[in-house]
Simulated scan of single mutants.
Amino acid sequence: MTFWILAPIMVAAALGILFVRKAVHAALLLAVVMISLAILYAVLEAPFLFAVQIIVYTGAILMLFLFVLMLVGVDSSDSVVETIKGQRALATIFGLILGAVLVTGLSQVTLGTAVGLEEANTGGNIEQLANILFSRYVFAFEATSALLITAAIGAMVLAHRERLTPKQTQASLAAQRMRDYAEHGLHLGPLPAPGVYARHNAVDTPALLPDGTASPSSVSRVLVARGVIRSGPAFADHIDEVQRQLGQHPATQDAPVEEDNT
């Protein structure tokens, strides 16, 4: 019953991975497939595979990919410009080789008589899984590791980008700042740091210019749009209070100091 419920969901999610346009949606659909597969492992009395599927693949690797995609962002439009010469020819050749290997392997598959889960898990599920994995299927295990290495190399190839412009040096950056100042009147140095008003020093407090006005470039435009920028007059009372506590307020400086005769 569990298989007939989860199988259509897994097939629909797998097809959605192929047809959705955004990478974040594809990662979420892949999480549905992995969680459903983990549930099938649990139904088949394979606790080790269930735990690995949830903790390693779904909980660690896939969520890491999902967070990176959400933080960095990926454009839905794919680049078709080849950054490495002969990339398509090599991909075609290796794709044909992989297809031939898969066809050869599937043609030699023999289905034996089912022995049941109790006999297969005799001595413990984890022990029997390790015994089969590193004895009868050791070649498939090593081939899978080679496939993962190939996938990692393919990811680096896809992420490779040729530098089309020379790398900017410190001198070129300084010259660009001078041109921006001459043409657009932009500030030459770095942006001013947030200002200090009495006991407050934060990113939502603008810096003061020499004439006493607030510098709009010292605070983030996001904070300006939200309307959470602090102003100097709002801290006038706090400044007076601190000056009184330190004895620097004009009213306290003019008052006579009482002597303590005790």
Rank of each mutant, 00 (worst) to 15 (best):
residue 164 L to Y: 12
residue 167 K to C: 07
residue 32 V to H: 06
residue 44 L to I: 03
residue 98 L to K: 07
residue 168 Q to Y: 08
residue 167 K to S: 10
residue 221 R to N: 05
residue 86 G to C: 06
residue 236 A to Q: 11
residue 110 T to Y: 02
residue 89 A to T: 07
residue 57 Y to G: 03
residue 153 I to Y: 10
residue 205 T to L: 08
residue 46 A to F: 06
residue 205 T to K: 00
residue 215 S to P: 00
residue 70 M to P: 00
residue 96 L to E: 04
residue 20 V to W: 10
residue 89 A to Y: 14
residue 54 I to Q: 01
residue 251 A to I: 00
residue 241 E to C: 01
residue 57 Y to E: 11
residue 7 A to I: 11
residue 25 H to S: 10
residue 144 T to H: 09
residue 29 L to F: 15
residue 202 A to G: 06
residue 155 A to V: 15
residue 252 T to Y: 03
residue 4 W to D: 08
residue 200 H to I: 05
residue 173 L to G: 03
residue 103 V to H: 00
residue 220 S to D: 12
residue 234 A to C: 00
residue 162 E to N: 14
residue 178 M to A: 12
residue 24 V to L: 09
residue 28 L to F: 14
residue 202 A to M: 04
residue 107 S to W: 14
residue 245 Q to S: 13
residue 127 E to L: 12
residue 16 G to M: 03
residue 168 Q to S: 15
residue 128 Q to S: 05
residue 86 G to Y: 11
residue 62 L to E: 05
residue 158 L to F: 15
residue 18 L to S: 03
residue 234 A to W: 02
residue 61 I to D: 06
residue 254 D to C: 02
residue 125 N to I: 07
residue 195 G to T: 09
residue 244 R to P: 06
residue 88 R to P: 00
residue 141 F to V: 01
residue 169 T to N: 10
residue 105 G to E: 01
residue 243 Q to A: 13
residue 233 P to Q: 10
residue 121 N to H: 05
residue 124 G to S: 05
residue 159 A to H: 03
residue 80 V to Y: 10
residue 108 Q to N: 09
residue 105 G to Q: 08
residue 56 V to E: 08
residue 140 A to F: 15
residue 55 I to E: 10
residue 183 E to M: 14
residue 87 Q to V: 06
residue 212 G to W: 06
residue 121 N to E: 11
residue 53 Q to R: 05
residue 157 V to C: 07
residue 250 P to M: 07
residue 139 F to L: 13
residue 74 V to G: 01
residue 92 T to E: 14
